[in-house]
Design a protein around this nucleic acid. Structure first.
Lengths: 337, 337
DNA sequence: GCTAACGTTGCACACGTATGCAAGAGGTGG
DNA sequence: CCACCTCTTGCATACGTGTGCAACGTTAGC
């Protein structure tokens, strides 16, 4: 039976009365480092336990000007890499006694509209986990002095953020270049994600620089919007060109899977004999037996850990952290020699 | 330069002063249905715009006893189905002017510990999106009268929830049974997820009932823990048995992918000639060309919409909704005849 | 012209917690 | 025994908003 009695929370006053102390004493019991006698603390905790009391985080936030909420902005949870990243961030945040407020944008542009909404919930800070979010986003930092940490996207010079963090995309891409060169590939090509994202640019830069150290040059270059359909289209163009590449590096795994499908079923190529393929992110589907994609792994847990750390550092000291580039790891599977 | 000035929000008082009215008037401007003259509203909005004022959701929540926060509990974001579900829920929630508070549990058991944490943030309601969460969870509903809606998991008789919603797993599984039977399969087998989840039980029930309508019986049955490794092990046992099945239905897609890999590479079977395989959920990897898995699709957006609707209905009327079973859709691809 | 009715506004209080300040308790050293 | 210091506690106030109540001004109706 669902009786609609008014919702009643246990307040610190009730605990205080049961324990025979004042509300202040109760409050101090739940405030680390506050001055409270061991014996009273015990009595209060007893009463709190008995009544099922938990401090009201909303009321506390109003008072302390710290809501304990941290916003996570994500543009594309469909991408398994971002799904894992959001999960890791959530776990990291709740491990520190705070709570993650997740805002998802259907398309990249919609994220700008989300941020004022986030601010009205008084988030202590914001983690932006998208390579594709527009630049204006970070200026809100000025409005309410809410710190922002960028993940997987470098801060521009005029952006004022608490920190930014990403994989060392340049070095990661260079590993693929080395692998291609050392296994005898002579006609490498690259499929970018979105041209205006730092992630894609860095992967291109690292790949090209790596190749040139081996005396190699790109024979083809295309753009695949980071998704399967885009990767398909790019693969068709590259593989149909007069000078067909013998190795393709894609800015993420999803596009690489599309390349594999197109190469096998539409061009009858066998991988890796006729064509080497590599991706980036070490997303789950790439590990499946039918693909077994060579890729570059990012340490997602570490990235989440460092990102939240940057935010807390800002909240405590007001100092912004220097950009962090995490090392990557080559995952060599069956789509390369 | 990051100067560490005290954080300053624009309050309704400042807006009131600029507009030459009282704080109450400002508050009423942002409260739908409140009594306010059109001309004052205009003046207040002008001032608010100018100062960049947004009502403080924390303070409002303290007053109205409605935080505007809705908790989402999820046990396994690694599963792409749940990732998509969480995204859909988040979008649905923020579309109604509320905010989703996401709590992720690494393993299923850890979720119980999360819920008190959630409660301290005064969530208005909780959406539990996991088949594997333990039963005790839902009893917290009584503690603070916080409504819970269960997704993808039926409520037991003694559980007091605002509503529960899931796909019509029985009917969905029956579709697969029909498909197997109508394409001439005679030796069907089933791989369960976790035996004690309603989702897995219903899919088993529907499958078996469907088969019996065609005069067929299971020749094998195993458990795969809903994950790839579990699916692999189950597939090896089933395919290595004396009476080898000619069709396997898995309680989710991830296990079905494992079955495909094992059948092809370890037993040299060709699909679908030697063996039909079907999954459940229509997860993204199953659609990849190398698998092209036949599966059952759930309408995730609709599920999210209805779930949040149930929660709001409870919040407004205090009435619990009757269980909802959403229709499924058969997605026929290349792993069945 | 007077009254009733209505729409609008401000005052004051409530929501549940944190914390500066002063007062009290208890102990120690001279 | 007194003065002083430390530790603990309660009082009072602040955080920013929503809302019942009463007072106000305006208009319509007779």
């Amino acid at each position: 039976m669902t009786d609609l009695g008014k919702r009643r929370w246990v307040t610190s006053l009730e605990v205080a009365q049961l324990a025979g102390v004042s509300r202040s004493a109760v409050s101090r019991c739940f405030t680390p480092g506050a001055s409270i006698a061991e014996e009273t603390r015990w009595r209060v905790m007893e009463a709190a336990e008995q009544l099922g009391y938990r401090p009201n985080a909303i009321a506390r936030g109003l008072n302390t000007q710290r809501s304990g909420l941290i916003g996570i902005v994500v543009a594309d949870v469909g991408n398994p890499f971002y799904a894992r990243l959001v999960e890791a961030l959530a776990i990291e945040i709740q491990g520190r006694g705070k709570a993650p407020l997740v805002f998802a944008a259907k398309e990249a542009g919609a994220a700008d509209a989300l941020l004022p909404e986030l601010l009205s919930f008084q988030v202590d800070g914001v983690l932006v986990t998208s390579a594709t979010l527009s630049l204006r986003v970070t200026r809100l930092y000025d409005a309410a002095r809410t710190p922002i940490v960028l993940l997987d996207r470098m801060a521009e010079d005029d952006e004022d953020v608490a920190g930014d963090i990403s994989a060392d995309n340049v070095a990661g891409a260079a590993m693929i270049a080395d692998l291609f060169a050392e296994t005898g590939r002579r006609r490498p090509a690259f499929i970018a994600g979105l041209e205006n994202t730092s992630t894609s640019r860095d992967r291109a830069t690292g790949f090209i620089a790596g190749l040139s150290r081996h005396g190699l040059d790109l024979v083809g270059r295309d753009v695949g919007q980071y998704d399967y359909a885009g990767g398909q289209a790019a693969a068709r163009r590259l593989l149909g060109a007069s000078e067909r590449p013998d190795a393709i590096f894609c800015a993420n795994d999803e596009m690489a899977l599309a390349v594999l499908d197109v190469a096998r079923s539409e061009f009858g190529l066998s991988v890796p004999q006729d064509l080497s393929v590599a991706g980036f992110d070490n997303a789950a589907p790439g590990a499946l037996a039918a693909y077994s994609l060579t890729t570059v792994d990012q340490d997602i847990e570490r990235m989440a850990h460092e990102a939240v750390g940057m935010l807390e550092r800002w909240l405590q000291t007001g100092r912004q952290s220097s950009p962090l580039r995490l090392p990557c790891r080559l995952v060599r599977r069956a789509t390369t020699l």
